[in-house]
């Protein structure tokens, strides 16, 4: 069994959107869940949060940034290619409920998993205030889509090329110090951003959730590679999460564990890029031709 790529384009440099035909996954998917894909027989299994899904047309959308070998390889695929495996939906769905005002924070490629949450929280009758951030304007994704699904939208860039010059946490703090009551915050992005959000909300009594994306193999609770420490207790992000109370997450441990395979990732990228550059190439195995 293989999975067709229905659509694929580069949204901003190094960030790509892909629609995968997987009707059963689309039917069962809910905001907050993730999938695991494998490109080919020698590939590794990588988890990606679901960015969107369409039951009628039977597809699931994923958005990924080129980081390691697998995402670089994925970036070279076209609609002529197929994925070997596409497993999901995995993890617990977000607990979408009517609360009042919900602040959604997406940083970098983390805007992608925030997008279905914006839709879901709005559908449930919440006022949705979204904050999306990127290093600079040309790396910002899903601005229009997020605007459509939000009652208010704030944009931040690290270099000030668009919106607020600074970090998403600046806006979070402004909102918390403002007059309007905030009932929940959901923040998804690089670990360092989620840790910063957890720090900012500390003095305030507002429920704050983050979505963790640690190293995992199977995504069903079988390997335990995705162990995270939540309030001193070991949890498996794949089955107990991926969303957890931001205040209770041991970010230092999580970030350290995320770095475990960095030398191997670098080696894999080096070998891969050499193969791509070499005249004989890899025999087309990497599909970059």
């Amino acid at each position: 069994m293989t999975y067709d790529i229905l659509e694929k384009y580069e949204m901003v440099p190094t960030v790509h959107l892909m629609k995968i035909r997987a009707p059963d996954v689309a039917k069962a998917a809910k905001a907050g869940q993730f999938i695991i894909l494998r490109i080919n027989e020698t590939g590794e299994r990588i988890p990606l949060t679901i960015a969107d899904f369409n039951v009628d047309e039977g597809y699931v959308t994923i958005i990924f940034q080129e980081m390691g070998k697998t995402t670089k390889q994925l970036a070279k695929l076209t609609t002529d290619d197929k994925l070997q495996d596409f497993v999901g939906p995995l993890g617990q769905p977000s607990k979408i409920e009517k609360l009042g005002t919900v602040v959604l924070v997406g940083g970098g490629v983390g805007v992608a998993p925030i997008y279905p949450q914006a839709k879901a929280y709005r559908e449930a009758g919440n006022k949705v205030i979204s904050i999306i951030g990127a290093r600079s304007e040309d790396l910002l994704i899903l601005e229009d889509e997020m605007r459509n699904e939000s009652d208010e939208l704030y944009i931040t860039t690290d270099d000030g090329s668009k919106g607020h010059h600074g970090f998403v946490t600046d806006i979070v703090l402004d909102l918390l110090e403002g007059d309007e009551a905030v009932d929940r915050i959901v923040a998804i992005g690089p670990p360092i951003m989620m840790r910063a959000v957890a720090g900012v909300v500390e003095p305030f009594d507002v429920e704050t959730l983050v979505s963790l994306n640690p190293v995992m193999v199977d995504g069903t609770g079988m390997c335990g590679g995705c162990r995270v420490l939540i309030d001193g207790e070991t949890k498996f992000a794949c089955v107990d999460g991926p969303e957890f109370d931001a205040r209770k997450v041991d970010f230092n441990l999580m970030m350290s564990r995320l770095g475990l395979y960095r030398p191997e990732e670098a080696e894999a990228v080096e070998v891969y890029e050499k193969e791509c550059e070499s005249e004989t190439g890899c025999g087309g195995g990497c599909t970059c031709q």
Partner: peptide, 23 residues
């Protein structure tokens, strides 16, 4: 966990890294 170690080695063929992608 032994499960993770063995799954990486057996199912994902990590002993053939980097020919296989799983480290």
């Amino acid at each position: 966990s032994a499960n993770e170690f063995l799954t990486r080695v057996n199912l994902m063929k990590a002993y053939q890294f980097p020919e296989y992608d799983t480290p």
